[in-house]
Computed example of a mutant assay.
Amino acid sequence: MGNDVLVKEIKGHVGKLILNRPDKKNALSHDLLIEIHIVLEEWSQDENIRTVIITGTGNQSFSSGYDVSSIPSKLTPEMAELAKNHNPLEMALASVREYPYPTIGMLNGYAFGAGLNLALCCDIRIAADDVRVGMPPAKLGLIYHPEGLRQFTEVIGFSRTRELFFTADTYDANQAKEMGLIDYVVPRSKLPIFSYEMAERISRNSPLSLKGTKQILNTLANGLSLSPDDLTAAEKLIAKGFLSDDLKEGQLAFMEKRKPVFTGR
C-alpha cells in the first residue's frame, strides 16, 4: 500500500480510509491522526461521499492505540499548524464523530485504547469474529481524556464504561458485541463484503435525511458535554497522572511484559 500512513479510496458514494502503519500495528501517530482530520474535513465538503468506512491494514490490527512514542515527522505546513494549536487525537476523533454522513468502523483486527475509541466514534461498528478489544489505561497508570470517556458512555452507558476502564480487561468479539462496543460480528472472510454492502445501502438513501438525522443525533448526544470548569478539573487530574510514579511503572511493566506494581503516587 505504499508509504502513506493513511490510504484513501473512493468507490461511488463510499469513501474508505485505511490506517497504514503495519509495522506499528496501525498505532495512531500524530501525523496519521492529523491526516485523518484533514481528509475527513475535505470529504465533508464533497456531497458525493455519503458513507465512510474506516479500517486497518492487514488482518492483525485495526489499531493498537495511541502511539505515545510518535513524534510528528514529515508534516506539511498545514499539518504542523494544526498540531500546534490542537490535540491531534481529539481532533481526529471529533472529525470522525462529526462527519456529516454516516461512518462505519470495519474492525479487521484488534482495537485497543485510542484505536477502540476511534472505532467507537463511528456510527456503526462491524468486526471480524476473531478480534479482541480493550481499554488498558488503568494498567498503564493513565487517566483517559474526558471527551473520550463521554464518547464511551454515549455508546455503551455508564455501567459498561466503568467496567471497561476499571478492569482494563480484553474482550473477544462476541463479548464486545454484548457490551455494545460492536454492532455486528461476521466471519473474517465476509467482513469486507458485509461492510461494503451496508455502506452502499446507506449511501443510496436520501442525502438530506442522512445528514439531518446525524446532525440531530449528535446534538442530542452533546447534552452530556462537560462544562469548562469540569474540563479544567479533568485536565488537572490527567496532568497529575502524567507526572506520577504509577505511569512510569506502568510503562516499564508493559515493556518488560510483567504485571505492574502500583503505589498510587
Rank of each mutant, 00 (worst) to 15 (best):
V39D: 04
G56N: 10
S209K: 10
V133L: 11
S227A: 07
M255G: 03
L89Y: 04
E41A: 13
N117Y: 08
V52L: 03
D245S: 10
K139I: 08
T219A: 14
S159P: 01
S70K: 04
R258T: 09
L243F: 05
I49K: 03
K177L: 13
G15M: 03
M79N: 03
G56L: 09
T153K: 04
V131H: 05
N48H: 07
H30M: 02
K259I: 07
M1C: 03
P207R: 12
A83E: 10
Y184W: 14
P77G: 05
G2R: 03
P207E: 14
F158W: 08
K190Q: 15
S63F: 09
I104N: 09
M198T: 07
N218M: 12
N48Y: 02
G115A: 12
E78F: 05
L224T: 12
Y99R: 03
Q251L: 15
R162S: 13
Q45K: 11
P207K: 13
L243D: 11
I34L: 11
T57A: 14
F194K: 13
V155Y: 04
V131S: 03
Y184K: 15
S95D: 01
V7M: 08
E98H: 07
Y101Q: 04
A92V: 05
P100Y: 00
K25E: 08
I53F: 02
T51F: 01
K8I: 11
R258H: 01
L82Y: 09
T263F: 00
E9P: 00
H30D: 07
K257Q: 11
T219S: 14
E200I: 04
G212R: 13
G58R: 05
G250T: 06
A83K: 11
T161N: 02
D46C: 06
L247K: 12
K214R: 11
A253V: 05
D245K: 13
T103D: 04
I238Q: 05
K240S: 14
K16V: 04
R265Y: 02
E81P: 04
T219E: 14
K236R: 13
G113F: 07
K190S: 15
Y144V: 07
S63K: 07
F242Q: 13
A138R: 15
G180Y: 05
S29G: 06
H37I: 02
L107T: 12
S73A: 12
L220R: 10
I182E: 09
S95Y: 01
I216M: 15
M135Q: 13
E178V: 12
L208K: 15
I36C: 02
I126M: 14
S73K: 13
Q215F: 11
Q60S: 12
M198S: 05
M255Y: 10
R21W: 01
S70L: 05
E81R: 15
F112P: 06
S189W: 09
R188A: 15
E35P: 00
R125K: 14
G109N: 08
Y171M: 08
A239W: 07
F262C: 01
K24H: 02
V155N: 06
V186N: 09
